[in-house]
Design a protein around this nucleic acid. Structure first.
Lengths: 200, 200
DNA sequence: TTTTGAAGTCAACAATCGTTTACTAGAGGC
DNA sequence: GCCTCTAGTAAACGATTGTTGACTTCAAAA
């Protein structure tokens, strides 16, 4: 099927496509280099469009960053669904160890980046909260359950560990960790998840 | 002992003291806000000295950042010594859970910050490597030991987890994690360390 | 007391940042 | 065909960045 008749014909000037190009380029840059170290001109160059279009489509650099966060959050919710996570520590470990380029780790690293903006912080905190709760639910946690704070804390430790691993894996060329494949990482991470979440 | 006679009398103009003031202020800023988001004028204001003295004492902003890293690394080596870490998972967990303001977590967060400078990256990588090896030694690892890569990998996972926890604890107001005391955190972290390092 | 070198100050530098403005060019409706 | 929005461009804005050089001030040596 080469540009089927029902598919929208490629337009030379496509606002939606340009917006998406900017968003993708921004996510990559913000994830890799952080907010402050990233220039709007870098992003525009990566996307191959004019700098002024960032202000047009996203109002400002902070607006673009917020859009990146919500886009990443939507991706995450779409992939994992609203249902509770898979219940086996193996599956959770596999998610954490997954490909750096476009899995959970990738989104977690972006979530660690800070712009100093309040709205962005709320978005970030919202996802971390809900993700932690769903992780705790695997271990039998439910809202308001007795002694549940302990389970929630343990789930958030798992989350923090996942974030730290993703960050160290992509940013530093550290020893065996940076070159480790998914298969290398699953066994230790399964142990980690089990130790923290199976005591419930 | 109030400024004993042998102690150097307080000098109105003290290069060493000024240098130290700048270094301390820079470590705080770089740790909290990262490299790119921190301004040399911010640092100088915090230290209560003139901006130009940064270029004088540290040659440049990057030079100051390198000095922060080496200072932090020296602190870490001085506190933990050259000897292997305490062998009990309890003690390791306590180190990780320690006070955010000035313990291992504080130094780890600074180590996560990147300036894009090569020299700084080498310093960072050097400490992470040696710290990972000392952590692996607790589980019986030694340089060149058979199958030792697996142990080293597990130790680095512990290190990454510690870094992620420290980062999430100080930067985001996440759930019970951010407000957790050292006593709250030690039990789950002991489980984490045991699960990863006791399988050797 | 005079001299001298270091410690600290001040003001400006060029470069780069995010953002805005005025403008050109293209595509669909009449 | 023309007309009219809208997508995209180019150039500049003021603000802020890291850095530098000439200047002043202090303290110790002579």
């Amino acid at each position: 099927m080469t540009t089927g008749e029902t598919a929208t014909p490629p337009r030379r000037r496509d606002a939606a496509k340009t917006r998406r190009l900017l968003l993708d380029a921004a996510i990559q840059r913000f994830t890799r280099d952080g907010y402050a170290a990233t220039t709007v001109r870098d992003i525009a160059d990566d996307a191959g469009v004019n700098v002024a279009l960032i202000s047009r489509y996203f109002r400002s650099k902070e607006g673009l960053f917020e859009a990146c966060l919500t886009s990443s959050v939507d991706d995450l919710r779409r992939n994992t669904g609203e249902a509770p996570l898979s219940r086996t520590p193996e599956a959770i470990a596999r998610q954490i160890a997954g490909p750096c380029a476009d899995g959970l780790p990738y989104h977690l690293v972006l979530l660690l980046r800070s712009s100093g903006d309040e709205a962005a912080d709320r978005i970030r905190l919202g996802l971390l909260q809900s993700y932690g709760e769903r992780l705790a639910a695997v271990a039998g946690w439910s809202p308001g359950s007795p002694g549940g704070d302990d389970l929630l804390l343990r789930a958030q430790v798992v989350l923090a560990a996942a974030a730290g691993i993703a960050l160290l894996r992509t940013k530093s060329g550290l020893g065996p960790l940076a070159q480790a494949t998914e298969e290398d990482l699953v066994p230790p991470l399964r142990d980690l998840v089990e130790a923290l979440l199976k005591n419930g």
